[in-house]
């Protein structure tokens, strides 16, 4: 990625970010050198299968867990070098929405106090100002202000996720990381929450990083998408470019595996079936991390790590077999 390419519009710049965990018998390279920008007002989707490091990337990016190496620039400041106190001062500008809304609430607090909590910690507001702001936030996310005295268990999963969103927005953040924010919800309720999040983005000019494994949802909400595999970003492109013309063999296989809600397309469809499962991030393969499952792998894939490079404007791929023009030089053999 060329430095400064998005200098004017990047809210977040991630460069060669690494997060390694020491475990008995080795090191888990959960995030192993990822670089990308998140542009003002956009939604960047971050996808990949379990264990690929997408959630750890989100947490490391917000400083919720310290980075092992690399940098995360937010508003021009590198967050990885900040003290806890300095980081805390940055918190109001960056918020996170987690998957399991029920688990993140104290069951004995009313939702009014749950939504008010970040403001009480970070802002110097008096009680009545907080009270008004809670009512305003509840209405913003589609909850009735009269419900402020109720407890979390009185709400459905979709409503609890609205409470979570209200809480995350209480400090007027500029940047929000959603870690699978709708994946625990039923599909009809997912749609309500996704629509709410996109309305709020338009209204408040938010920048989103959306971490998800549901590719249809990611396609719907993202402007650009980054695909992760075993701690690396293997491909990043504008959403439609990525879905219409995936370049990395992993992206191709991943997209071909997504079931489509259309029986005729499903029957006619050619699938790239990968062998086996994702290797353990403790024993990541040498060279290209995808080579053990890649239908196209060659000898050099085992010895040389493919560089993550911009193969055409705005499109990044880490594969030896994708040439400079951004096309896959070896045709993929497709199995039914």
């Amino acid at each position: 990625m060329t430095a400064g390419e998005h200098a004017d519009t990047a809210v977040v710049r991630v460069r060669d970010l690494r997060k390694h965990f020491r475990v008995s018998g080795g090191t888990v390279r959960a995030v192993d050198g990822v670089s990308f920008d998140i542009l003002r007002g956009e939604t960047l989707g971050l996808v990949g299968e379990s264990g690929c490091g997408k959630s750890t990337t989100g947490r490391t990016l917000l400083g919720l867990t310290p980075a092992t190496a690399g940098s995360v620039e937010f508003r021009g400041r590198d967050l990885t070098g900040l003290s806890r106190r300095q980081l805390r001062a940055m918190r109001p500008h960056m918020q996170m929405i987690f998957q399991d809304s029920a688990a993140s609430f104290n069951p004995r607090h009313t939702i009014g106090s749950i939504i008010a909590e970040p403001m009480a910690i970070h802002l110097d507001l008096d009680r009545s100002a907080i009270h008004d702001r809670v009512a305003e936030l509840m209405e913003l996310v589609g909850l009735k202000r009269e419900w402020r005295k109720r407890f979390p268990h009185e709400f459905s999963g979709g409503q609890r996720q609205r409470i979570n969103i209200a809480r995350a927005l209480s400090l007027n953040p500029e940047f929000v990381v959603g870690d699978e924010p709708v994946s625990a919800l039923d599909v009809s309720i997912q749609a309500q929450v996704v629509n709410l999040m996109s309305d709020l983005q338009d209204e408040l000019g938010l920048t989103y990083l959306m971490i998800a494994h549901d590719l249809s949802m990611v396609r719907h909400i993202s402007d650009r998408v980054a695909v992760m595999y075993l701690g690396k970003v293997v491909e990043l492109a504008a959403t439609e470019t990525l879905f219409e013309d995936p370049q990395h063999p992993y992206t191709q296989a991943l997209l071909s595996a997504v079931p489509l809600p259309n029986p005729k397309q499903e029957r006619a469809r050619q699938r790239i079936l990968l062998e086996g499962d994702v290797p353990s991030p403790r024993e990541a393969p040498s060279g290209c991390v995808f080579r053990t499952r890649c239908p196209l792998a060659e000898a050099r894939c085992a010895t040389e790590e493919p560089p993550y490079r911009e193969v055409s404007p705005g499109r990044f791929v880490a594969c030896h077999l994708v040439d400079g023009a951004g096309s896959n030089v070896v045709p993929v053999e497709i199995t039914g």
């Binding site: 039923d186 599909v187 009809s188 997912q190 749609a191 996109s198 249809s216 719907h220 809600p261």
Partner: peptide, 23 residues
Amino acid sequence: GLLASIPGTGLAGSRLASIPGTP
């Protein structure tokens, strides 16, 4: 309603159809 709320079945970039209320 269920089919319409799946992303990708409607128009790209449009709002997802959702079913109001809860089960």
